[in-house]
Simulated scan of single mutants.
Amino acid sequence: MNTIYLVGFMGCGKTSVGNQLSKRLGVPPYDVDSAVEKLRGQTIKEIFYREGEEAFRNYESLAIRQLPLEHAVVMTGGGAVIREENLCYMKNKGIVIYLKTSFPVLWKRLMKEEERQKRPLLLTRKKEEIQALYDERRKQYEQCDIEVNTDELTTEEVCHQILQKIISFKPSTNRQN
Rank of each mutant, 00 (worst) to 15 (best):
T154F: 08
K126M: 11
A132W: 05
A80E: 02
L69F: 04
H71E: 14
G18Y: 03
C12A: 05
K127P: 09
R125L: 14
V7D: 00
N86A: 04
R119L: 12
E113M: 07
S34M: 10
D151I: 02
P104V: 13
S22H: 11
K108Y: 06
N58R: 15
L123I: 04
E70W: 01
Q66W: 07
D145N: 13
Q176K: 12
V17M: 00
L25V: 13
E53D: 04
I95L: 09
E84S: 14
N58C: 09
E37T: 06
V7T: 08
R57A: 04
L69P: 00
V27F: 14
L163M: 14
V32Q: 11
S34D: 12
S22P: 08
E152K: 03
A132T: 09
N92F: 00
R57V: 08
E84K: 15
L21Y: 03
T3R: 05
I44C: 05
Q117D: 03
L110Y: 07
L87I: 07
E51C: 06
N2A: 03
R83L: 15
T155P: 00
M1Q: 04
R138M: 15
S22Y: 09
K38L: 04
S172I: 09
I167L: 13
I130E: 11
Y89W: 15
V27D: 12
Y49K: 15
R116P: 00
E60I: 14
L21E: 03
D151Q: 09
Y59F: 15
Q143H: 02
A35W: 10
K118M: 07
Q20T: 13
E136G: 03
E114C: 01
T150S: 06
Q176L: 12
K112C: 04
V96N: 06
K165D: 01
D145A: 09
P68N: 05
E128L: 12
T155C: 06
R116W: 04
R109Y: 04
Y49Q: 15
L62P: 01
N174F: 11
G79M: 10
L133P: 06
K100I: 03
K91Q: 15
R65Q: 14
S16L: 11
F56M: 08
E70G: 01
L106E: 09
T101C: 14
L87S: 01
N92E: 14
L69A: 08
R65L: 09
N19C: 09
I4R: 01
R65E: 15
D151H: 05
I146H: 02
R109A: 09
V17Q: 02
V81I: 11
I64V: 08
F48N: 03
E37K: 10
I130S: 12
S22D: 03
F9N: 03
E53M: 11
A72D: 01
T124W: 07
R65A: 11
R137W: 02
T173Q: 15
Y5S: 02
E84T: 10
